[in-house]
Amino acid sequence: MSGNGNAAATAEENSPKMRVIRVGTRKSQLARIQTDSVVATLKASYPGLQFEIIAMSTTGDKILDTALSKIGEKSLFTKELEHALEKNEVDLVVHSLKDLPTVLPPGFTIGAICKRENPHDAVVFHPKFVGKTLETLPEKSVVGTSSLRRAAQLQRKFPHLEFRSIRGNLNTRLRKLDEQQEFSAIILATAGLQRMGWHNRVGQILHPEECMYAVGQGALGVEVRAKDQDILDLVGVLHDPETLLRCIAERAFLRHLEGGCSVPVAVHTAMKDGQLYLTGGVWSLDGSDSIQETMQATIHVPAQHEDGPEDDPQLVGITARNIPRGPQLAAQNLGISLANLLLSKGAKNILDVARQLNDAH
C-alpha cells in the first residue's frame, strides 16, 4: 500500500501541473516587456503551470559599433537563445518575429505568432524639431536608422535628408537623439515604442507609400524545439490566425527572394473581405531603383483552434497545428507568387547589386 502511495506522490510531482516552463529572452527592456506579455497570456491559459524567465545577451546586443547589415552573420539576435533551447536550458524563446530568419536551424520551429501590433515605422524627432515631419525637416538634416530597408525607401522619398546608421537598443538610440546634436530624427518601429509606453515620442507614423515595413514587423514569434510536442501544444494558444497568415505570406515572399538583413526588402499586408493583399518591394541601397507589386488571394481566416493538420510540417519556419492547413498554404503560395513576379521584373539584379555594395563598404 505504502509503495503505491509513493508512486502516486511521484506521479503528482512529475505531472504537468508541477512543471516549471523556462522562457528565454534577450536582456533589453523591450525584450523583457514583450516576454512578460507572452508569459502573462500563458499564465492565464495555464494557471497550474509556473513560468521562469531567463534573460541573456546576444551577438546583436554586444556589437554596437557596426551596422547590422555589415556584421555579416545571420541570427544576430537569436543564436545564443537557440543555443540555450538546444541544450534544454529553456523550453521556449520569445523573439520579435522580424529577427527570426525565414529558414531556422534544424530542430527549431516557430510554435506561435502572437497578435500583431502596429507594424509601421515611426519617426521620433529631436526636441528642437518636435512638430515637424520628415518632409518639413531642414535641408541636409541627419536621420538615424539601423535599417537598409528604411534608408533606401526614405532616401527616395525625401532626397533633402541624409540617413546615417544608429545602433543600440531603444533606450540607447533615444538617448543619442536627445543628448547629442548629430541626429534631427530617428526611425523606429511603432510597436516597440508603444510597448515601452513611449507613445508621446511618436512624431509621425510612416504610411506604406512612404515606407513599407519589415517582414514580420510588429509581431512576436515564440520559438521552440520542433519535436517538443508538449510545448508546441502549450504555445499553440498564442497563435493569432490573421497575423499568422499575413506573416506566412510575408516570410514566403522574403524567403523566395532570398532577402535578408543586408538587402532592402519591404512588405505591406492587409486582410479585407476574405482577401489577403500582399505588397512587396525591393530597392537599391540608395533607393534610386525599385520594383513594387501587389497581389491578392482569397483566404478564409479560420477561428482559433479549428482542428489543424496533425502532421505539422513547417511552413517558412512556422508550425501551427491548430490552424487549418489550406489557408496557410494559400498564404505561402501568395508570397511565392509575388516573389516570382518581382524576380521576373529584375528584382534579383537589384538585390545582387545591393548585396555587393553593402559587402564592399
Rank of each mutant, 00 (worst) to 15 (best):
V20K: 14
V20E: 06
I21P: 05
R22S: 11
G24D: 00
T25E: 09
R26N: 01
K27L: 10
S28P: 00
S28N: 01
Q29N: 15
L30Q: 00
I33Y: 15
I33F: 06
Q34E: 01
Q34D: 03
D36H: 13
V39M: 07
V39D: 03
V39L: 09
A44P: 07
Y46R: 08
P47D: 09
L49Y: 15
L49E: 00
L49T: 14
L49G: 11
F51E: 03
F51H: 09
E52M: 01
E52P: 07
E52G: 11
I53D: 09
I53V: 11
I53N: 06
I53E: 07
I53C: 07
I54H: 05
A55P: 11
M56K: 13
S57R: 11
G60T: 07
D61R: 00
K62L: 06
T66I: 14
T66V: 14
T66F: 09
S69P: 11
I71V: 13
K74D: 05
K74P: 06
L76G: 10
F77S: 04
T78P: 02
K79S: 14
L81A: 05
E82A: 11
H83D: 12
H83C: 13
A84T: 12
L85P: 02
E86G: 07
K87S: 13
E89W: 08
E89G: 08
E89L: 11
E89Y: 13
V90N: 04
V93K: 00
H95E: 04
L97W: 02
K98H: 02
D99P: 05
D99T: 02
L104M: 13
L104H: 10
P106E: 14
F108E: 15
F108M: 03
F108P: 13
T109F: 04
I110P: 01
I110N: 04
A112I: 01
A112R: 00
A112E: 03
I113A: 08
I113L: 14
I113T: 06
I113S: 03
I113H: 00
C114D: 11
E117L: 10
E117D: 13
E117A: 07
N118R: 11
H120C: 12
H120F: 15
D121M: 02
A122V: 13
V124H: 00
F125V: 10
P127R: 13
F129E: 15
G131N: 09
K132A: 09
T133Q: 06
L134C: 07
L134D: 02
L134I: 08
E135R: 13
E135S: 08
L137H: 05
P138I: 08
E139R: 08
E139P: 01
E139H: 14
V142W: 09
V142G: 10
V142M: 10
V143H: 03
S146K: 04
S147E: 03
L148H: 04
L148R: 10
L148P: 15
R149V: 02
R150P: 04
A151C: 11
A152V: 13
L154H: 09
R156W: 11
F158W: 12
P159Q: 11
H160W: 10
H160I: 11
L161G: 04
R164K: 12
I166M: 13
G168A: 03
G168W: 03
N169A: 06
L170G: 12
N171G: 11
N171R: 10
N171Y: 13
T172M: 05
T172V: 06
T172Q: 02
R173Y: 01
R175C: 11
R175F: 04
L177M: 13
L177Q: 05
Q180A: 14
Q180K: 14
A185S: 05
I186H: 07
I187D: 00
I187K: 01
A189E: 03
T190E: 04
T190C: 14
T190M: 03
A191W: 01
A191Q: 00
L193S: 08
Q194D: 10
R195Q: 04
R195G: 05
M196W: 05
H199F: 15
R201I: 15
V202Y: 08
G203S: 15
C211L: 10
Y213H: 14
G216R: 03
G216S: 12
Q217E: 04
G218I: 01
A219D: 00
A219N: 00
L220P: 00
G221A: 07
G221L: 05
V222Q: 01
V222A: 10
A226L: 08
K227G: 03
Q229P: 07
Q229L: 09
D230F: 04
L232Y: 05
L232Q: 02
L234E: 02
L234A: 14
V235S: 01
V237F: 07
V237A: 02
H239N: 06
H239E: 05
R246C: 05
I248H: 00
E250W: 03
R251D: 02
F253V: 06
H256Y: 08
E258I: 12
E258D: 15
G260D: 15
C261Y: 08
V263G: 00
V265H: 01
H268S: 04
M271C: 06
K272R: 09
G274W: 09
Q275P: 08
Y277G: 04
L278H: 03
L278E: 02
L278C: 12
T279L: 06
T279C: 02
T279F: 09
G280R: 05
G281D: 00
G281Y: 00
D286L: 08
G287P: 02
S288I: 14
I291A: 13
Q292L: 12
M295S: 04
M295R: 13
M295L: 13
A297M: 01
A297R: 02
T298K: 10
I299H: 09
I299W: 05
V301R: 09
A303P: 05
A303Y: 06
A303F: 15
Q304E: 13
Q304T: 07
H305A: 02
H305E: 15
E306N: 15
G308A: 12
G308S: 09
P309L: 13
P309A: 14
D311G: 14
D312S: 02
P313R: 14
P313T: 07
V316L: 13
V316P: 06
T319A: 07
A320M: 05
N322W: 14
N322G: 00
N322L: 06
N322Y: 08
I323S: 10
R325K: 08
G326R: 11
L329Y: 05
A331E: 04
Q332I: 00
Q332C: 01
I336K: 02
I336C: 00
I336D: 00
L341K: 12
L343A: 08
S344I: 14
K345N: 11
G346L: 09
A347Q: 13
A347Y: 15
A347W: 00
K348M: 06
K348I: 15
I350R: 06
L351T: 13
A354M: 12
L357W: 00
N358K: 15
D359A: 15
A360D: 12
